[in-house]
Design a protein around this nucleic acid. Sequence first.
DNA 1: AAAAACATGTAAGCTGTTACATGATTGG
DNA 2: CCAATCATGTAACAGCTTACATGTTTTT
Lengths: 185, 185
Amino acid sequence: MGKQPQQTTLSYALLGLVHEEPRTGYDIRKIFQTTPMCHYSSSPGAIYPALKRLEKQGLITGEVNQTHALRPKRVFGLTAAGTESLLGWLALEISADDAIWRLDELMLRFAFHSFLGSDRATREFLRALARETDAYSKVLENEMANLPESTPIHGRLALESGVESYRVHSQWARRALLHFEVSSS
Amino acid sequence: MGKQPQQTTLSYALLGLVHEEPRTGYDIRKIFQTTPMCHYSSSPGAIYPALKRLEKQGLITGEVNQTHALRPKRVFGLTAAGTESLLGWLALEISADDAIWRLDELMLRFAFHSFLGSDRATREFLRALARETDAYSKVLENEMANLPESTPIHGRLALESGVESYRVHSQWARRALLHFEVSSS
DNA sequence: AAAAACATGTAAGCTGTTACATGATTGG
DNA sequence: CCAATCATGTAACAGCTTACATGTTTTT
């Protein structure tokens, strides 16, 4: 319940991955290099310090795999506090700012929503996401309509791309929601 | 021609804005706060140091407006080297990596393409953007098809959102291209 | 006279980048 | 035995965030 120090997106990605199954830093690097769950830095200079931070905060623990005595590899898993932090993040309410500036993080959160037992939070998540992205696409649409005469076509088109981007996300969220609706009847 | 030290996206945004017309740091902050050309930090701790860096590199110069002797405001404009750097950046070829990881920067570049006199570079830009985003959407599509059976629906949907995102950008680029085609006949 | 907006900056701290460093294990 | 891959880390540096600091001009 106490307010936890807020993590970077990378940190949450790490928490989610070691929650799926215990992993080493190297495992995680490979995932970031070779799977679509990428868009995160696979550089050792990012990952190992991040893992160390999480360990110091008590969210993960590394067990040394002793099959080879020298050059041990450290397999990380979530602690109770780590699980709590991860699940708390997943269930967080979506703010308008999240939808506008941190869509990437929201999509990562959604991808990990399978960790929540029930679909209720996911439905709420998708409804909020659809609402906020739709609202912002309309804000941008409005700003496009009020652009000064002199605005060159390039600027207009770039803005149009932004409008579309948020609109498409909103539509995606509504479509995704159908997968979690209770098929009542 | 010499390789210039590469700038951050924020730096290029600043170069573009002061190229439109001479501006102060405060002007720029307001633009980032109030117009859709935002998504950049309007914090003084980001902007003033960035302006100072550009000045030290000789890309912009600040003229003190002496209408009020105390608390002077500094109006920045591009130097010849600054113009060269900005135009060089605009005309840069698009790599696949740019389209995958730095779409935001590409859209900023496009928005400033009005500074290039001719439409030829813009056409090339849009063609390359359409090609690369389309190619990557297909890469993701393929990865979605090859996802392990066990992958939860959340992961699939998140990936689908990525596929769509790139596809929509590609379609946008193709549509935008129509505005710059020579209406030959 | 006070509040809001104008206007510019600095300092500490955090995170990520790039580059370097080290050594083990496995496949050809 | 050599190369590639496995595996973990550190160090210097750059840039951004947050918070602070300061003083002016305009509006109410």
